[in-house]
Amino acid sequence: MLNVRELLQSIKDSPYELIEISAPHTGVVTFAVTEPGARVSGPSGSLLEKPGTQLAILERERNKKPLSAPQKGVIEAVRTELSGTFVEAGTPLLTIRHYLTADEVVDRILKKALYLFLAPERAKYYFVPEVDKKIKAGGSRSVRLTDGQELFIMSRMKREATLAYSGPEGQIYSVYFRVNENVDTGQPLIGVCPGEQLPLVQEVVAKVRSEWGEAR
């Protein structure tokens, strides 16, 4: 049985996440934030259309790409020694100390409560067209799954294969992968909520939201 209180307490003991901001591609970097301790905001707006605080600019082929904070937090470290230099893709630039939001805590706990369907291999995953249409029309929770149902197209090394869902019947509650991004072996693709557990999951969500609110 899921011990929500215990899980929540363990998160409360360490309610932070260190987010490393790396160069997404090569380019000459200049920093907009230079001091550790500065507060930054994540994306905002109803559709998260407003980018977060600008952290740095990466210039490549006369294109300036602003790097914005993906989450709210405090700057933990900045590699100012790289300012004005050409950096390779993947070079660590800054670190943000981020206080977990209620949604993130819910997400972490749900990963323990839901049935997770894992990626059998490192590959790119797509929903099969029929499921994809349903999700686009009504959201992932509109899709009910049964064991053996064809669910994914698994694409790797230019080959594609269909992948059937195996697990309890239920609705897709969470989707953990993004289109065109590789998912490592063993990482969750979706979280499925079996019908009979739906009230329990909803209760967990409500409880976390109220408890996390108290903690903040």
Partner: peptide, 16 residues
């Protein structure tokens, strides 16, 4: 030798 984001990114190659 440079690390790039992708071999498919033209700007990446030309920047290098």
């Amino acid at each position: 030798l440079y690390r790039v984001a992708s071999y498919h990114d033209a700007s990446e190659l030309l920047a290098v």
